[in-house]
């Protein structure tokens, strides 16, 4: 029962990933791509949590946490770069 629900959630998240990827490819501006990248990371964090549930491994959550941290820093850095601050 629960496995079926996790599979449905994974499918929906996968569709979401594809839609965000379409926006990432299409652009048109660079800021659009960064926004799409931000959304892709958030979806990826959900994926990591789902995989952790399926495999029953709590260690994967650390990866999700570090991933969230790094993507946040990355987005801020790219935004500052696009603004021409450095």
């Amino acid at each position: 029962m629960v496995e079926v629900l996790i599979a449905i959630a994974g499918t929906l998240a996968g569709l979401a990933f594809l839609l965000a990827l379409a926006r990432f490819v299409r652009g048109p501006s660079r800021v659009d791509r960064v926004v799409a990248f931000d959304v892709l990371t958030v979806i990826a964090i959900t994926f990591i949590v789902l995989v952790a549930l399926v495999e029953n491994r709590g260690v994967y959550l650390d990866a999700a946490l570090v991933y969230a941290l790094l993507s946040f820093l990355g987005v801020i850095a790219i935004a500052r770069y696009l603004e021409g601050r450095f």
Partner: peptide, 27 residues
Amino acid sequence: IIGGLLLVGGAAFLLFGSLGLLRMPDV
């Protein structure tokens, strides 16, 4: 089962978000 439904609900919101990302007209 509640947990599983929350997972599905969360994934549905992810899908709405991505759909919005694709459909909205400006940044």
